[in-house]
């Protein structure tokens, strides 16, 4: 287990280095001079040569590419993601200020996915090939195919603009009623597609488990069907379900970009889009690296947890 953990840690570090490299070179090998990206929008043609040289020196763009690269990676590994052009504040500070909102939204979406997906999947498996199963499968298919941004706007149209039940945008104080009211629509927008994925997985896993001998034994000894399903079958199907929920957390983290920009949720995703529209490239780099880094770490944690929980997992 220890050598497996160490190996996975090393591979995660390697992947994060790769992410930094890819982000750096995609920014530097893109068409156009990176200095144009550093100039505030609208200044492009009017900037004097002196100003451009100053900026070049300040951001180290006068150095050879490999020097720039090493400095960038070195700084990033010390959590220095550069200076935002739009706000002139350190990107790391901004990212750290905003990420709790994104985590809150992602966790809430995961909760929606689990609360909707698991019961639906169990119902479909228990009543295989029945009306309930068909209905669940159809709803799951519709859920996977409905784009986040469309669902978000439709929810906003109905529950905020027409009915006025929920606030259309922004974030409230966490763990208060106001916070919850702000959270419902973004979390539902983000979580529905995942709940469809979870429902499908729960259904197929439960179908496998329900065929097992121990389930038949539990039935044979006269246990109530509901207890057989919940206590025996679902508990044994839980491991793959928890794993997928863990992996989906990472996916939701990046999917939050859309939900955040629809509902003006002040998180990393919205920051990223604002940075792109403001041509604030240090901020874009920083946000992308941070989100991808979290994604890698969450996946690493899920892998290690899975290996620790299931003794059958091969460490090689």
């Amino acid at each position: 287990m220890l050598s497996y953990t160490v190996r996975r840690l090393f591979s995660a570090i390697f992947v994060i280095l790769g992410v930094l490299t890819l982000v750096f070179f995609s920014m530097h090998l893109a068409p156009g001079d990176p200095i144009d990206m550093l100039l505030p929008p609208g200044v492009g043609g009017r900037a004097s040569g002196e100003l451009i040289e100053q900026l070049r020196a300040r951001h180290g763009l006068d150095q050879p590419l490999h020097t720039q690269y090493l400095r960038y990676v070195g700084n990033a590994l010390q959590f220095d993601l550069g200076q935002s052009i739009r706000t002139d504040r350190p990107v790391t500070a901004e990212v750290l200020r905003l990420y709790p909102a994104t985590i809150e939204l992602t966790l809430a979406a995961l909760l929606v996915a689990a609360l909707v997906g698991v019961p639906l999947g169990v119902l479909a498996a228990v009543h295989k090939n029945s009306l309930i199963d068909n209905l669940t499968t159809t709803v799951a298919l519709l859920g996977v195919s409905l784009p986040h941004f469309l669902l978000g706007l439709l929810l906003m149209l109905v529950f905020a603009l027409e009915l006025g039940w929920l606030p259309p945008s922004g974030r409230g104080e966490p763990f208060t009623l106001d916070g919850l009211r702000h959270l419902i629509m973004p979390a539902a927008t983000l979580g529905v597609a995942t709940s469809a994925i979870v429902a499908r997985l729960v259904r197929s896993t439960m179908l496998d488990v329900l065929k097992e001998d121990f389930v038949r034994s539990a039935r044979a000894k006269g246990l109530a069907p509901r207890l057989v399903v919940i206590r025996h079958a679902l508990r044994n199907a839980l491991l793959p379900i928890v794993t997928v929920l863990g992996l989906e957390f990472g996916v939701l983290l990046s999917g939050a970009v859309i939900a955040e920009s629809i509902f003006a949720w002040p998180g990393l995703g919205r920051y990223l889009i604002l940075a792109i529209n403001g041509k604030d490239f240090p901020a874009v780099q920083g946000a992308v690296v941070f989100i991808a880094g979290m994604f890698v770490l969450v996946n690493l944690a899920v892998d290690l947890l899975y290996a620790a929980l299931d003794p059958r997992v091969q460490y090689n």
Partner: peptide, 13 residues
């Protein structure tokens, strides 16, 4: 592996 470390839409963005 590095490309897969970018969750879906993030790389595209």
């Amino acid at each position: 592996d590095v490309l897969l470390a970018f969750p879906g839409i993030l790389l595209a963005i």
